[in-house]
Computed example of a mutant assay.
Amino acid sequence: MPSHVDAFSAWLLEGLELTSTLFHVGQYCGAWQASTSGHRRASFHVVLHGQCWLHLPARAQGPARSVPLRAGDAVFLLADSPHCLSPDPLAPERGRETARTGTMTPLDADGREAPGSLGLACGFFEFKSGLDDLMLGLLPDHVIARHDQSALHGARQIFELIRAEALLDPHTPSPLIARLTGLLFVYALRALDGNDELAPCFWSLMRRPAFAPLVAAIIAEPGKPWTTANMAEFSHMSRARFCKLFSGLSGQPPAQFVTLVRMKLAAAMLSTGVSTPDAAEQVGYQSESAFAQAFKRVTGMQPGAWRRTANDADTARHSTLH
């Protein structure tokens, strides 16, 4: 039976249409510093060979960090975060966290690694959904997938495929690398279940036995009357304790999560042509007006406009195919 974390991962990714694009593949030697910051997009780094350090500056959630990375490790930055990779365990001077120095050269086609070099595949990814920002808000700002994590056992084969694709033609990187990296991200979400360094985010909540069943129940039946009192009772807590722990662990109040779950389902239904009254009823709203207000507050669009936009996009896809 899938764990609550696996079920939550599937729910989170459903309908988000994860797409990845490759930025560059190659190797660095000597003194260098690499970063994907400044492109206003989420990004990734996959270490193909060698070792390096990931430098993350201080943020509101915690102090600056310098994290060692080895071959097979991957980093996913879910926002355009200041950061850099370098061979130096010491972080760069303040203000130079996003500087780029050194020259990336093609990988050796025969797989030989230059002494002291680092093989790297970097790129960007995005989720094509009107709920992107809200859904990504349920995750930490970065995810590190370790090659030796037990939860990533199946991902090792994906890494080997990425490495094999990178070596096919060092001068013309394979587009399959970006697609394979998207799969690697799915595995990385599983690995979060064993991450003890998470800053407050929704995933922290999923690791607590008192809350994971509640989250799973809300996702399974969003139309139920999930009041704060009902959720506290489900979790066997007083209302005050429930609200304090939920908000402290996830960084958002419980009612906000319930609304997001409902609007995610409603958006999917509207996209398939379901009427606004039917969608409202399915996600627990007795008033169509209240539903429309909540939907616009979450998505920025009225339900009818969302449905028309989805229908227009579907019509455009079909006309392209034919």
Rank of each mutant, 00 (worst) to 15 (best):
F125Y: 15
F125A: 03
E126N: 13
F127Q: 07
F127Y: 13
S129D: 13
S129Y: 01
G130T: 08
G130L: 12
G130S: 08
L131Y: 08
D132N: 11
D132I: 01
D133A: 15
D133Q: 14
D133G: 12
L134M: 12
M135F: 14
M135R: 13
L136Y: 04
L138H: 04
L139I: 07
D141Q: 12
V143C: 08
V143I: 15
V143D: 02
I144H: 03
I144D: 01
A145R: 09
A145T: 05
R146D: 03
R146I: 03
H147F: 10
D148C: 05
Q149I: 00
S150D: 13
S150Y: 07
S150F: 11
A151F: 00
A151M: 05
L152C: 13
G154V: 06
A155H: 09
R156A: 09
Q157A: 15
I158P: 00
I158S: 08
F159M: 03
E160F: 06
L161K: 11
L161E: 14
L161W: 09
I162D: 04
R163C: 06
R163A: 13
R163I: 02
A164G: 06
E165N: 06
A166G: 04
A166R: 02
L167D: 04
D169G: 03
D169K: 01
H171T: 14
T172W: 11
P173Y: 11
P173E: 12
P173S: 13
P175M: 09
P175C: 11
P175I: 12
L176T: 09
L176C: 10
I177Q: 03
A178C: 12
A178Y: 05
R179L: 14
R179H: 14
R179C: 03
R179K: 13
L180T: 01
G182N: 01
L183N: 10
L184N: 10
L184G: 07
L184V: 07
A188V: 04
A188R: 01
R190S: 14
R190P: 00
A191M: 00
L192P: 02
L192D: 03
N195K: 04
L198A: 05
L198Y: 04
P200W: 04
P200R: 02
P200N: 07
F202T: 11
F202G: 13
S204M: 13
S204F: 00
S204H: 09
S204D: 11
S204Q: 15
L205I: 14
L205W: 10
M206A: 06
R208N: 11
R208E: 15
R208K: 14
R208H: 14
A210S: 13
A210V: 14
A210L: 08
F211N: 02
A212V: 04
A212S: 15
A212R: 05
P213S: 07
P213E: 08
P213W: 08
P213Y: 09
P213C: 10
L214F: 10
V215D: 04
V215S: 04
V215Q: 06
A217T: 10
I218F: 09
I218A: 08
I219H: 02
I219Y: 01
A220V: 04
A220Y: 00
A220Q: 14
A220M: 01
E221I: 00
E221V: 07
E221N: 14
E221H: 15
P222I: 07
G223K: 04
G223P: 07
K224D: 13
K224G: 00
P225T: 07
P225M: 07
P225Y: 03
P225S: 12
W226Y: 08
W226A: 03
W226N: 06
A229H: 12
A229W: 07
A229S: 14
N230Y: 10
